[in-house]
Amino acid sequence: MIEAAPIDSVMRALADPTRRAVFERIARSDEITVAELTRHAGVSQGAVSQHLKSLKTAGLVAERPEGRNVYYRAQPDGLTPLVDWMSHYGVFWRDRFADLRNLLQEIDP
């Protein structure tokens, strides 16, 4: 059985469109600072920091302080609860598509 807390945390973190956009920018970069994220986020630095806090709590990003800057990078393992949850439903769809294929072959051999 899949644990509820990790999947809930990941889904909650990625449910917000701005937060999802911040995560996608981090995932496309090796490392990125809050200042760089804020430039194109369309929200304040404070809002970006709050989104980063949620992403970090969910295990989706890690931070590395260096001097006055903090660098963020994506943590691919943070998506594991979501991937595991979706793979559970992948079996459902594979079975349904196999049934559909069989039905179509019966209808039009």
Rank of each mutant, 00 (worst) to 15 (best):
V70A: 11
H51S: 06
Y71I: 11
D77M: 11
K53C: 09
R68D: 09
G42W: 00
T57A: 15
D77L: 12
R64P: 07
N69E: 13
G42A: 02
Q50P: 00
L55R: 04
K53T: 14
V43R: 01
G59A: 10
R68E: 09
V61I: 14
S49Y: 01
V70I: 14
T80N: 08
N69C: 07
D77I: 07
S44K: 00
S49F: 01
A62N: 11
D77E: 14
A62F: 06
G46N: 04
V48R: 00
Q75W: 02
A74L: 04
G78Y: 00
G59V: 07
G42P: 01
T57G: 11
A47Q: 03
Q75T: 13
Q75E: 14
P76G: 10
L82M: 13
L79K: 10
L60Q: 09
G67E: 06
G59M: 07
N69G: 05
S54C: 09
Q50H: 07
P65Y: 10
V48F: 01
P81Q: 08
R73S: 15
L79N: 07
L55V: 03
A74W: 02
Y71P: 03
R73N: 08
R73T: 12
P65C: 12
V70F: 04
K53M: 12
V61C: 09
G46I: 03
G78D: 02
E63V: 07
P81C: 10
K56A: 15
E63H: 09
L82Q: 06
L82F: 07
S49D: 02
P65G: 12
V70M: 05
A58L: 07
P76H: 05
N69S: 14
L52A: 04
L52N: 03
R68K: 13
E63P: 02
R68H: 10
R68M: 06
R64V: 14
L79G: 09
E63Y: 06
V43M: 01
Q50R: 13
T57D: 13
G59K: 08
P65F: 11
G46R: 02
E63L: 09
L55T: 04
N69V: 08
H51E: 05
Q45K: 07
Q45A: 06
E66V: 15
P81S: 11
E66R: 15
L82H: 05
G78E: 02
A62M: 11
S54M: 09
G67Y: 10
G42L: 00
T57E: 13
K53G: 07
G42E: 01
V48G: 01
G67S: 12
K56S: 15
V43S: 01
A47E: 01
